[in-house]
């Protein structure tokens, strides 16, 4: 272990760290928005749009991010859609994450019990009132574990961005290893970098999950 190497690499890792956090944040927020929209289209069975949403969710969930990124970054320019690697990364991550989030929300909506829905119906609620006052509040609470898992998953998926040379954490480490042929120090810093991001995120999500669950169901 050579401490001077670690010291010298700190600024580069700092940049990579910030980029990873930033890309994750944008990706997660975008995924939640896309996921909510897709799951609502599916829930209300909007003609055509709901089929499109379902096809999208299945495509996004059943293909690797890496190939989605290659498509965006290498194949799209051929038909004239050129974009920066960062743009491709964000679009790819949101494409992927939106599918996962939609699946999570849909699972939550489906988890709302029939008896809860019946009791809403028995109070004369229409489809939209039922959704607004019964299914969504409880469904979103039920989808919290899936949402938490997706957040963790998406943060880790940003490491795939290295394949289109976005200088996030993993890419930073690989670059340095390639340049200086020292792996132990750079890998250690990489592992610590992810630990610094993931440990607080996991703790926060656990706390949030308990809180939402208690708020909605009291256990």
């Amino acid at each position: 272990m050579d401490w001077t190497i670690i010291q010298q690499a700190l600024p580069a890792y700092g940049h990579g760290f910030v980029l990873t956090v930033w890309l994750s944040l944008v990706g997660i927020i975008g995924s939640i928005i896309v996921g909510v929209i897709a799951s609502l289209l599916q829930y209300f069975k909007t003609p055509i749009l709901s089929q499109i949403a379902t096809a999208y969710v299945e495509l996004a969930r059943n293909t690797p991010l890496l190939i989605q990124l290659f498509f965006l970054y290498y194949a799209f320019p051929v038909i004239g859609w050129r974009m920066s690697s960062i743009t491709a990364g964000i679009i790819g991550l949101i494409f992927l994450g939106g599918g996962y989030m939609a699946e999570g929300f849909t699972g939550g909506f489906q988890g709302v019990t029939d008896s809860q829905i019946n009791s809403g119906e028995a109070l004369g609620m229409n489809r939209f009132q039922l959704a607004r006052y019964v299914v969504f509040p409880q469904g979103f609470a039920l989808s919290m574990p899936a949402l938490a898992a997706n957040v963790i998953f998406l943060i880790k998926e940003t490491s795939i961005f290295t394949v289109i040379a976005i200088p996030e954490l993993t890419n930073t480490a690989l670059d340095l290893i390639g340049m200086y042929y020292r792996s132990n120090e750079y890998l250690l810093m990489l592992v610590i970098g992810y630990a610094i991001i993931m440990i607080p995120v996991i703790l926060l999500l656990n706390w949030l999950e308990r809180k939402v669950r208690y708020g909605a169901f009291g256990d």
Binding site: S115, Q116, N118, S119, G120, E121, A122, L123, G124, M125, N126, Y133, V134, P137, Q138, A141, G215, A216, F217, G218
Partner: peptide, 20 residues
Amino acid sequence: WQAIRQKIGMVFQSYDLFPN
């Protein structure tokens, strides 16, 4: 039925209050 249900109420075995 939505209209009628406002005039015919129903109470269930499992109460089914909205927990939230």
